[in-house]
């Protein structure tokens, strides 16, 4: 039994110690905005924040966490979808199928927290999440827009 602080609430997790954080979030905490894509930390669809750091939750066991660590999922990024990235995502119509986008936004939010004015090279170096529909250029433009840069594509 683990106790996790998810989006500001302490949740009792009835799962085996080696259960990945992803599946505790999805199946015990009932927050399905965080996605399963690969299970081996390759695709980033499962990205959440742990004390502000972008973390691929599919490859971390719940036993590695306790309630002192603040876990934030896409549902907790902002109370009403008003995070600058979420607004930029809507303004530029970034998502296609959308399945990877929770992870993209969470990875981008951690990037902006650490580097509020990232260059294109910073963004391309830091955002390694996989999108199969092909939203990369709009993702990059939306991060720039949220950071107060221009909207230029590319």
């Amino acid at each position: 039994m683990a106790r996790l602080n998810i989006n500001g609430r302490v949740v009792e997790i009835a799962a085996e110690d080696d259960t990945p954080l992803l599946w505790a979030i999805r199946e015990q905490a009932g927050l399905t905005g965080t996605k399963y894509g690969c299970g081996v930390a390759q695709c980033g669809a499962c990205t959440v924040h742990v004390d502000g750091v972008a973390t691929r939750s599919c490859s971390m066991p719940v036993s590695a966490f306790d309630e002192s660590q603040k876990i934030v999922t896409i549902e907790g990024l902002s109370p009403d979808g008003s995070h600058p990235l979420q607004r930029a995502w809507v303004a530029l119509d970034v998502p296609q199928c959308g399945y990877c986008q929770s992870g993209m936004i969470m990875a981008a939010a951690a990037l902006l927290a650490a580097n509020p004015k990232p260059s294109d090279a910073d963004i391309r170096g830091e955002i390694t999440n996989i999108c199969r529909c092909g939203t990369y250029n709009r993702v990059q433009a939306a991060i720039k827009q949220a950071a107060g840069g221009n909207q230029a594509n590319g």
């Binding site: 009932g30 399905t32 905005g33 399963y36 119509d93 998502p95 936004i105």
Partner: peptide, 26 residues
């Protein structure tokens, strides 16, 4: 703008993998 964007930015879009039904097993 697309009609289906907002829910894809806040985790609310439900995909098949997210479905939960009462009494459901996996």
């Amino acid at each position: 703008p697309r009609l289906d964007t907002v829910d894809k930015t806040n985790g609310r879009q439900v995909y098949g993998a997210d479905l939960v039904l009462p009494g459901m097993l996996n």
